[in-house]
């Protein structure tokens, strides 16, 4: 086994995952806010932020879907060792990771059901650009309006329309992340 795939986990899991969770929670509770995270060094090409989110939220109870460009032996091993999460297809995953184009179409992912809308997938979108400029956002967590660079608009409008069902998105870029829950209206 290549030892590179075993390195790069949290050195102090309890405290680093607590700090990372606070950053993710803060980003999800305030769509448009960009947070920096650190502590994980996943194998390329996974971004540091996506690696941190994986280590913080994934474990044997959360199946993960890797899009084709990320479905590499090194990443499978890294996730297997550090998170213990099974790698599955798009239709059964709790978390999906990949660039936007490879995550499409979104209707492959679990959207939850009307009695249990929480049983839906969270998508980690790897983006080359992340800034608090672009599409206008409105909804819970936003006092008036916020802005966030999004890969497109229509898909997120459609996602918000099926509320309380739908997907939640975490955008990762380098060591930074932002989030867009299903409750956010993209204008």
């Amino acid at each position: 086994m290549d030892d590179l795939t075993l390195a790069g986990g949290f050195s102090d899991p309890a405290q680093q995952s607590a700090q990372a969770f606070r950053a993710v929670m803060s980003a999800l509770a305030r769509p448009g806010r960009i947070e920096a995270v650190r502590g994980a060094e996943p194998p390329a090409p996974l971004s540091q932020a996506a690696g941190v989110v994986l280590l913080t939220l994934c474990d044997p109870e959360t199946p993960v879907y890797l899009t084709p460009s990320l479905d590499l032996p090194s990443l499978r091993q890294w996730i297997g060792f550090h998170a213990g999460a099974p790698i599955v297809g798009a239709d059964e995953c709790s978390f999906a990771i990949g660039p936007w184009e490879e995550l499409l179409p979104l209707d492959r992912f679990r959207q939850g059901c009307s009695e249990y809308p929480d049983r839906s997938a969270t998508l980690l979108v790897e983006t080359p650009l992340l800034e608090a400029r672009g599409a206008t956002l409105r909804g819970p967590g936003i006092r008036d309006t916020a802005e966030l660079s999004l890969p497109e608009i229509a898909a997120f409008q459609q996602n918000a329309r099926v509320f309380p069902l739908g997907l939640d998105f975490i955008f990762t870029c380098g060591d930074r992340l932002a989030a867009l829950p299903r409750s956010t209206e993209v204008v």
């Binding site: 075993l6 390195a7 986990g9 050195s11 102090d12 899991p13 309890a14 060792f81 550090h82």
Partner: peptide, 10 residues
Amino acid sequence: PEFEYLRPPE
């Protein structure tokens, strides 16, 4: 022997 943690004791 010298070593480094992959996963510190948890």
